[in-house]
Amino acid sequence: MDIAFTAEERAFREEVRQLLRVNMPPELRRKLAEGRKLSKHEKAAGVRILYRKGVPTWPKEYGGAGWTPVQYYIFTEEVRAFPAWTQFGYGESLVGPVIYTFGNEAQKKYYLPRIANAEDWWCQGFSEPGAGSDLASLRTRAVREGDHYIVNGQKTWTTWAQYADWIFCLVRTNAEAKKQQGISFLLVDVKTPGVTVRPIELISGGHEVNEIFFDNVRVPVDNLVGEENKGWGYAKFLLANERFSDAGVTSSKESIRRIKDLAARSCAGGAPLIDQASFREKIAAVEVQLKALEMTQLRVLANASKEQKGAQDPASSILKLKGAEIEQTIAELLMDVVGPYALPYRSEDQIEGNEPPIGPDWAATIAPGYFYSRAASIYSGSREIQKNIIAKAILGL
């Protein structure tokens, strides 16, 4: 496998670097480098800069940049290293591809430009109490009455719903069919009467996730994506995209660079941690695993053009599984580097992530990050689900 970049790809990398250097506000860069939280407005501003040539992962005909998989990989590497912010909810990465692959022309014309311009923040309404890893057991109902669906039920662990303008939901539209065959894919305006968003405070102290309640919510039938009762297939397509994005290679690379930098500093007057052979061995071990993951990701990228419309490489489950393990290992190494300084001060009424540190500024977000990384084995499909997919689709067991 030839992993050398072509002259055109190297020129593209420099083009991305120039875009970041010239256009990205220094304040956004500083906050991200320090691990601080950005506001919805700041995220939208940063994303609009990066989307000037189109949405990075979309085809040109739908407002995308039309980049090759390798170009997108280079773009992601440079953005993470800068750093800058690439995501405005889950419009670009999740629901957008579902809409332009399975949606009708009216849906494409209305929703896709608004996603591309960071106008609408989308959140994901999949998991429910009792229907997480076993997602097909969901119980949120949508009953058709004329030209509307009446939606009742609950979604949970809904990331960034506090910012959301829209939520894409899996709902049960046929209670008599087998559980995978009676599910539909609906687009719901969060401002619709009957929608209630409640925060869930995490062990990290952050408020990334929420629970959402639907109480007789009227959703136009025009907001149904694809065919009624065919939503399970669209969800599998979406989740495969999410698992691919969750490999986190570029983020892990930047985190390892940070670990090395921090470990080279003197801690509490003692010798730098990087001088310990055992610690260097831990770093080397995770770097080897990360390189193997990167090679797997590049193979998935290389195969992407060969997949038929709506299909995804089952190797995306390998990326999700191993990417989560590496993310958690890196979070543990950061805790080793920082020690007690990783714990930020928290007042009783704070539930967000901009708390002042008790030690150096760079240490304040490390313990919350470590706690949040525990969820990496669950979100986007649990570790057990990924192993089942790998066993069935790749190993043929």
Rank of each mutant, 00 (worst) to 15 (best):
S137E: 12
G130V: 08
E92R: 04
L170Y: 02
L138K: 02
F126I: 11
T101C: 06
A161I: 07
E128Q: 14
Y90A: 14
T192K: 03
G103H: 06
V197W: 05
V197Y: 08
C123M: 15
D134F: 08
E201N: 13
W121N: 04
G153W: 01
C123Y: 03
A118D: 08
A118M: 11
R141G: 08
I200V: 10
Q154G: 08
P193E: 10
I115S: 02
D120E: 15
I200H: 05
E128A: 10
D189Q: 10
I99C: 12
V188K: 03
I115T: 02
L112P: 00
Q107N: 13
K178F: 06
Y163M: 14
T158K: 13
G96Y: 09
A177L: 00
F185R: 09
R144N: 06
R144A: 12
I203Q: 15
N174A: 04
K109R: 14
Y111R: 04
G125S: 11
K191N: 15
R198A: 14
V188H: 04
T159W: 07
T159I: 12
W121Q: 06
I150N: 05
G132Q: 15
G153I: 02
G125N: 10
A106V: 07
Q162V: 10
R198C: 06
D134C: 08
P199R: 04
T159L: 12
Q162R: 13
V197M: 10
G96I: 02
L187Y: 05
Y149F: 15
I167T: 10
W160F: 14
V171R: 04
E105V: 12
A142E: 05
P83N: 00
I200G: 13
N174P: 10
P113V: 09
Y110C: 02
Q124C: 08
G146P: 11
W166D: 11
E145P: 09
N174L: 00
K155C: 10
A164H: 07
T86E: 06
T86W: 02
Y149I: 08
G153C: 08
P97W: 01
F82D: 02
D147F: 08
K155A: 03
H148I: 13
V197R: 01
